[in-house]
């Protein structure tokens, strides 16, 4: 989705401070500058840049009249906000009880072995991130995954192997 932005960031290009300030200013025009828009704003920034760069924190803080500590505290509280870019693809495997009851552990094992990654890691080539998710609300047809933006139910190690193969091509 944000492949080009991500690629740039992975390449170590960290001179985005002006970029960020401009985008934050645009968002404030849209959303207003009250503290209540902090989560929507962070979601929008992450949507646009792929992650919440530490350099965004001062820009957001001054736009919403908050301290940097306030913004940093929020960014680090919520599991969704990442401070590093994702891989180009993201595989999220459900780890919650109902999927466990249907064999999620075996699927997770296949994924970690096949990708050589632990949960939460991104492959060194930036191709794929493997993540856990705790319930997608598809609990009668697990094990479930989100592969990029596509939900997939009834995964077994064989289908997962095929899906991962598609991503790696």
């Amino acid at each position: 989705m944000n492949a080009t932005r991500n690629d740039r960031s992975i390449a170590g290009d960290a001179t985005h401070a002006d970029d960020y300030a401009a985008v934050v200013a645009r968002l404030v025009e849209d959303m207003g500058g009250e503290q209540t828009v902090l989560l929507p704003m962070l979601h929008a920034l992450q949507e646009e840049f792929g992650y919440i760069d530490d350099l965004m924190v001062p820009a957001v803080a001054s736009a919403l009249n908050l301290s940097r500590a306030d913004v940093h505290g929020v960014v680090t509280f919520y599991h969704d906000f990442r401070r590093r870019p994702l891989g180009r693809h993201r595989v999220r495997l459900c780890r919650a009880e109902s999927c466990q009851a249907r064999g999620a552990a075996a699927v997770e094992r296949t994924a970690t072995e096949r990708l050589g990654l632990r949960m939460g890691e991104t492959s060194p080539d930036g191709r794929v991130t493997l993540d856990a998710v705790y319930c997608l609300g598809l609990c009668a047809t697990g094990p479930n995954a989100m592969i990029d933006d596509v939900p997939v139910s009834r995964i077994d190690p064989a289908t997962l192997d095929r899906l991962l193969g598609d991503l790696m091509r």
């Binding site: 919650a96 009880e97 109902s98 705790y134 319930c135 598809l138 609990c139 009668a140």
Partner: peptide
Amino acid sequence: EGDSGTFADR
């Protein structure tokens, strides 16, 4: 609706 095993809200 964070509870595993629930999806009625969704």
